[in-house]
Design a protein around this nucleic acid. Structure first.
Lengths: 352, 352
DNA sequence: CTGGCCATCGCAATCGTTTGCGGTGTTAAT
DNA sequence: ATTAACACCGCAAACGATTGCGATGGCCAG
């Protein structure tokens, strides 16, 4: 007889009501109790017995111990979420989307921030794996990403979010960058712009190359000028790099009346140099961003941008990962979510 | 002899290198291996043996299985983080601060978003506890918070962040709201304002009452007008509620030339109302916010606010929680972190 | 009446660690 | 020389769940 906890003190200490307790209470063996509580195995046990066990479990307030369960099944009900920096306003909505679907599936997420440092990334992923995460949602993918292909070879379940990897069968969910950019360019051309520039994101990321490729196509399709000088690249998706690139563009005297930025942060960088140089937006130059991160409508001028359903992005990625976990043999699916142009006041017809 | 994994395929499958493997490799029992690897118990085993074991562990790439360890020790190396909504820009920096110190201590955080719903909060905390978190960092505390006192009675380790609970010995770490508000009021008075309003946060939270109390004191201390009509309250710390309260203030005809908002979101609400009613800031009304959330400098006008070291807040809270875990008997400490006034362009002398 | 099948359930091993306890062998004290 | 003290290490029992396998009993068909 193991020591009973003091009666009348339900849940006094931690929560020591174990499977054995409910088994005893129901007058069965722990094995039967386990099966009775497990939907997959319920049919192996008498319906009446199941009822007794679940009732016992309920009245005792039994909560299975996921650690013990995890030890036996080597499932942790946990997934790892690898992002560059939670502080980047792009990610909180994604994270919430992910957590929402994980939560309803009984899973939870361990979040790590790599700060885009490959060394750190490797270490953090190691620690994630040692915590037995059942899969990874990765938002830090670069086009060339040896670590990720290595993980894939080790059959780690991975789904990419917001990024793809070249020449690789790895499931991903991204926004429809191409039509987003096309929408932006069309909007500008419709306003009358002919010389529109592009401040591209880093070409080491799929997002960067997809958007700049889409830009070149759109410029051609909608009949704007195809001047290579109108395209500059950023080293990182940051405000500072955006500003630097904008300065480069201006300094080399490339004339333009509109710019589509690789993302909102880069657009913010443009705003900074506009302020430095007394350029007024949208009168002198129109700007459109990408992502529709929060509070863009509070800027002066409110930023025209393309809205990406980040929360759904996250939700879909989580669903996809759970699918991979449930049926490891399914072939990788990927998803392209629709985006929308959000017109605010940073775009206007060019000065006559 | 248990089946060896195929040689030449290091880490091929999951990561099946177990303590037993290193024990065998070092020619000792798992028990000794365990002790050799555990700093607390190393002195119970011969130094030479320790060396052999650690070398074996290193060459095999041994990673202890935290699940198994947790099962035995009922420690999960995990803490729960309870916040209202990750999407609120206030929290990402806090989370990063927390994760930084947890990471270096070998802990990690499970984040849940309550959306300020007590029912959801209870359910999420239950799920956190069933995952054996060793403690909680809570950012959702209200002045009256039965759930939290109940948890405290059950000896759950809790540290509050950004909030306190009334009449309760529960460790917390907060910014110095009082001097923050005092700084703001002094700044406005120095500019020449005499009728300064306060749009207070919800008085159900310590932050709300602390700031509005500080406001009343500061107004008196610096000789501004003490008109109760100058103070209105928000139901929530949100943009919408801030706007609503600002409208109430204006609609009842209370004259004022400056307002200190309970936080930045509320200040943003004021901006919205200014836009609606063609009030220009700072010419007609000055505004100062609280928190210095990201991108405030991009607003028009850039928002004067009081800066709170959120990342340090998080870091200190995490340190505090780890302390509580390590030595459960220590009496609760609390921390008040210094804040600074950040003057931008939303404040100016009142119109002559 | 017997053998076989099926439904139901218990036994016990197992997951990878930690840890109380007891068993060595060695050294120092009497 | 006997023994106490000690350092070191192995044995085995945990931790709380899952699961292959075997045992039991009831039932039907042959």
């Amino acid at each position: 007889m193991r020591p009973k906890r003091p009666a009348g003190a339900p849940q006094a200490g931690a929560q020591p009501v174990t499977l054995r307790d409910v088994a005893e209470a129901a007058g069965v063996h722990t094995a039967t109790a386990s099966r009775a509580l497990n939907p997959k195995a319920q049919r192996m046990v008498n319906a009446e017995t199941v009822r007794r066990v679940v009732r016992a479990a309920e009245t005792l307030g039994y909560q299975p111990n996921p650690i013990a369960r995890g030890l036996k099944t080597s499932k942790s009900s946990t997934v790892g979420l690898v992002i560059p920096d939670l502080t980047n306003p792009l990610f909180p909505p994604i994270v919430r989307g992910i957590e929402n679907v994980l939560e309803s599936a009984g899973y939870s997420a361990l979040i790590v921030n790599t700060d885009n440092d490959p060394e750190r990334e490797r270490a953090l992923i190691d620690s994630l794996r040692s915590r037995q995460v059942e899969g990874l949602i990765v938002a830090t993918a670069r086009l060339e990403h040896p670590l990720l292909v290595q993980l894939q070879e080790q059959h780690v379940k991975i789904v990419l979010i917001n990024r793809r990897i070249e020449n690789l069968q790895m499931p991903f969910v991204v926004g429809d960058d191409a039509t987003g950019i096309a929408l932006a360019v069309k909007h500008l051309v419709d306003l009358g712009h002919t010389r529109v520039a592009h401040i591209a994101g880093p070409q080491t990321t799929s997002t960067g190359v997809d958007r700049s490729r889409a830009f070149r196509h759109a410029v051609r399709d909608y009949g704007a000028e195809e001047d290579p000088a109108l395209i500059v690249e950023c080293a990182h998706w940051s405000e500072g790099d955006g500003a630097a690139s904008m300065r480069r563009l201006l300094d080399r005297g490339t004339r333009c009346t509109a710019v589509v930025a690789g993302n909102d942060l880069i657009a913010l960088g443009c705003y900074d140099v506009f302020a430095e140089r007394n350029i007024s937006c949208p009168e002198d130059i129109s700007v459109v961003g990408f992502n529709d991160m929060p509070f863009l409508d509070k800027l002066r001028p409110p930023l025209t941008t393309v809205g990406v359903p980040h929360q759904e992005l996250g939700a879909e990625a989580a669903r996809m990962l759970l699918d991979c976990i449930d049926e490891p043999e399914r072939r990788p699916r990927s998803l392209l979510l629709p985006v929308t142009l959000i017109v605010r006041d940073s775009t206007a017809p060019p000065r006559a």
